[in-house]
Computed example of a mutant assay.
Amino acid sequence: MKKFLALLLLSGFISNAALAADIEGLWFTENQAAQVKVYQCEDRFCGEIVWLEEPTWDQDDVDNNKDAVLGAPKIDLKNDVESLRSRPILGMHMLNGLKKVENNQYEDGKIYDAESGNTYSCEAKLADAGDKLEMTGYIGVSWFGRTTTWTRVQ
């Protein structure tokens, strides 16, 4: 009986440890077109694009965007701030200020979407024993936001 109780308590600690997985690490975006490195910045979390499946403009990009240059590194052409339109997508800091509020829950962040050129408020939730990161970007109220699921890079 003592062994059973000890095993039961131990399994509870292991489960809690698994649920309290860390948001830090390398994540594939939902479409797996990019990898984002999430890291601690002071008492919050930030993210940087560290890999792109297609880091340079291809012919389709050039055909659909007059400012894209075939074979050149992709840049932030859709940014509302003109001075930022020449910054590279690769290496871009696109997640800022995400604060852990409880196990597996993060909020009060900002996330930049280079595909639209928009910045959104964001919150995140770790799921699937820490292998999935549900990122919700929104304006105003998170209920009206859009959630995408990132997958931890193994």
Rank of each mutant, 00 (worst) to 15 (best):
9 L>T: 09
105 Q>R: 13
118 N>A: 13
77 L>I: 08
96 N>R: 15
91 G>E: 07
123 E>V: 03
88 P>R: 08
55 P>K: 05
146 R>M: 07
8 L>M: 14
131 D>T: 15
9 L>V: 11
102 E>M: 13
15 S>K: 13
154 Q>P: 15
128 D>W: 10
149 T>F: 02
47 G>E: 01
81 V>Y: 09
37 K>Q: 12
51 W>F: 07
32 Q>M: 10
151 T>A: 09
47 G>F: 00
147 T>V: 05
10 L>C: 12
65 N>K: 06
118 N>P: 02
88 P>W: 02
20 A>H: 09
105 Q>I: 15
44 R>I: 09
44 R>H: 14
112 Y>K: 00
120 Y>I: 07
84 L>R: 03
141 V>W: 13
114 A>W: 03
65 N>P: 03
1 M>G: 15
44 R>S: 15
98 L>Q: 02
98 L>H: 01
90 L>Q: 01
9 L>A: 13
43 D>Q: 14
147 T>C: 07
22 D>V: 03
137 G>A: 08
24 E>D: 11
39 Y>V: 04
2 K>V: 13
28 F>W: 14
104 N>R: 14
22 D>P: 04
34 A>S: 11
22 D>T: 11
33 A>W: 03
56 T>V: 11
46 C>E: 10
15 S>I: 14
138 Y>R: 04
42 E>G: 12
70 L>A: 03
100 K>M: 10
95 L>N: 00
34 A>I: 00
136 T>L: 04
52 L>C: 07
74 K>S: 03
9 L>H: 07
82 E>N: 06
149 T>N: 06
83 S>A: 13
121 S>E: 10
41 C>Q: 15
70 L>F: 08
76 D>E: 01
43 D>E: 14
123 E>A: 08
43 D>N: 14
59 Q>P: 00
149 T>K: 06
138 Y>I: 04
133 L>D: 02
66 K>V: 12
135 M>I: 11
110 K>H: 10
47 G>T: 00
146 R>K: 15
17 A>P: 01
108 D>F: 08
111 I>H: 01
6 A>C: 11
26 L>R: 11
92 M>S: 01
53 E>P: 07
108 D>N: 14
36 V>C: 00
17 A>H: 11
139 I>P: 06
11 S>G: 08
107 E>M: 02
131 D>C: 13
136 T>C: 08
94 M>T: 09
138 Y>H: 06
128 D>M: 12
143 W>Y: 15
52 L>Y: 05
86 S>H: 05
100 K>S: 05
19 L>I: 10
89 I>E: 00
85 R>N: 01
121 S>P: 02
151 T>S: 12
60 D>S: 09
145 G>W: 01
51 W>T: 02
135 M>A: 04
34 A>C: 08
62 V>W: 01
16 N>W: 14
124 A>K: 05
118 N>D: 12
58 D>E: 05
84 L>I: 00
29 T>K: 01
